[in-house]
Simulated scan of single mutants.
Amino acid sequence: MSISADLRARAETLGQSLPALLAEAEHLAATLMLGEHGRRRAGQGDEFWQYRPAHAGDPTRAIDWRRSALSDAHFVRQREWQAAQSVTLWIDGARSMTFTGETARAPKRDRARVLGLALAVLLLRGGERVGLSGMTPKPGRAQLLALLETLEADETADYGAPDVAGMVSHGRAVFISDFLGKLDPVEASLTAAADRGVRGVLLQVLDPAEEDFPYQGRTIFESMQGSIRHETQSAGDLRDRYLARLAERKDHLTRLAAAMGWHYHCHHTGQQAQSALLWAYRALEGGK
């Protein structure tokens, strides 16, 4: 099996496993249902979806008085949102994403690609338009092949920066990266996306070694490109400072995402991929 075929098979398998996870999450069942009209959610559509109890702030014209007359409560008649969303994926292909703390564990890049493709499978099945940065988001299963071809190209830089090219105004976006490089480009990309009315998610993918810093004694730290190198005789003494810096970075990303109306989540390759996929899918629905 070729690399692309294997990657596609893994993404398809992961995408097919999501409905089982959704069955265990009862509170998602009403909003994460894939059907011919796409992801079911309230909006300005033509098809009746459901009645829900009226909340404070609902306009009087939204209340269905006929349904409300059958009980002591007021109900709002919701219609299904049928307009397909355009979702742009940026999956970091920089050299830092090729890192793995153990030879038996896949590098971050593999996990990021599988998650991105699995998410694309789910979105396309739901009738959404999907594309990678620089591509025009399109619907249909055939779009997966175009995504695979684009993902095969790796970058030569140590660290990647989100690309907002091709993003559709008022669409959705997903940035998947380790976000270990300078954060200024990330902030600039988020600002540019927000200016277009784009909302989305930041999914940080790390290796367990980057989370735990298990190093002791003499250690040479070197970037994957070899442009940054640091040697120490007592790596263990750096652990507390490293973990503090990592926590600061995660907090920065969290606050940055929140300020732009986005969502942030950190996932590491020692965890089950399904949990990150479920989070990303929920976050695109508007949850946390």
Rank of each mutant, 00 (worst) to 15 (best):
R113H: 06
L124Q: 14
G127R: 03
L119F: 08
L147P: 03
A84M: 07
M97C: 14
A94N: 13
G127N: 05
L124R: 14
L147D: 01
L151G: 02
L89H: 03
K138M: 15
S133W: 01
L148E: 14
V130M: 08
A106I: 03
L117M: 08
T88P: 07
L132M: 01
A120V: 03
E128M: 10
R125N: 15
E102S: 14
L117D: 03
A118H: 03
L115K: 12
G127K: 04
A120P: 09
D110S: 11
L124Y: 12
A120H: 05
L117P: 00
V114D: 01
A112C: 14
S133T: 03
Q143C: 13
E128G: 13
G126C: 14
L151N: 01
L122H: 03
R109V: 12
L132Q: 03
L145D: 15
A84E: 00
V130K: 06
D92A: 08
L115T: 09
W90V: 01
G116R: 04
A106P: 05
A146W: 05
K138C: 13
R105P: 00
A153F: 06
V130N: 11
G131I: 06
L122A: 12
A146T: 09
R113G: 12
G134H: 00
W90K: 04
A106N: 04
L115G: 13
L124A: 15
A84W: 01
Q85H: 12
G116W: 00
P137H: 11
A118G: 12
L117T: 05
E152M: 07
G134P: 08
R129H: 11
R111W: 00
V87L: 15
E102H: 13
R129Q: 13
A142N: 06
D110K: 02
T100S: 15
G126I: 08
V121F: 13
I91G: 03
E149P: 00
T103V: 15
F99V: 10
